[in-house]
Amino acid sequence: MSALLEVRNLSKAFRGLKAVNNVSFEVPAKGIVALIGPNGAGKTTCFNLIAGEFAADTGEVRLGGTLLSGMRSDQACKAGIGRTYQVVKPFPEMTVEENVVVGALNRAPTVAAARCAANEVLKLVHLDKKAHIRAAHLTLPERKRLEVARALATQPRILLLDEVMAGLRPTEVDEIVAVFRTVNQETGLAILFVEHVMRAVMALAQEVVVLHHGEMIARGAPDAVVRDPKVIESYLGAEAVDG
């Protein structure tokens, strides 16, 4: 498989602290890759660098061969990056449908077309019944799904999910994992996701990249990575592997 997203030697320091240090990995076309690691390992920073939230110190990011480095976040989105935020950022005074319409307008030529597309996406994430409620009234799990819906509506080539399963009950995790798997299989959308919920990582990821103190310490198939002694020591602990 050819790589869709290529991350090469990416580094970023904040006031001398190396949040991301010389990280390289790929996400293949139609692939699903998980980015895991303890808190402060640089996962979200990695996302922000890929999505153009801030600029990397060194290294580069390419999507389907196009250089993303140096782009603003709106340009990255136009290029095909769809992202969610770890701390959700809905548009609270707009309805759920309007929230997603904003995303859909990224590709849709008219508002009417965007509305159609938005409703499709809302069905997919099971928010269609709440379409006309203001986003401020949603529960936290619903807001996370709204974030996903908004990002999906931009019709990205790759979806970046930042801990969308944190705080969900196991059944809810399975539900949303199923949604991602469907989207991935039906549309071939590639997914890169940051996650602490190992249940989701094991079920969804084809490959796992492990970060620790900003550096990549392991990379490979989920089963192999969770048995890697370095990973167990730094992050998972013995019981996580059993769970």
Partner: peptide, 14 residues
Amino acid sequence: QAIRENEEAAQALG
């Protein structure tokens, strides 16, 4: 309205 509600998220949506 998206910009009014959350500019950063709005920009990330293209």
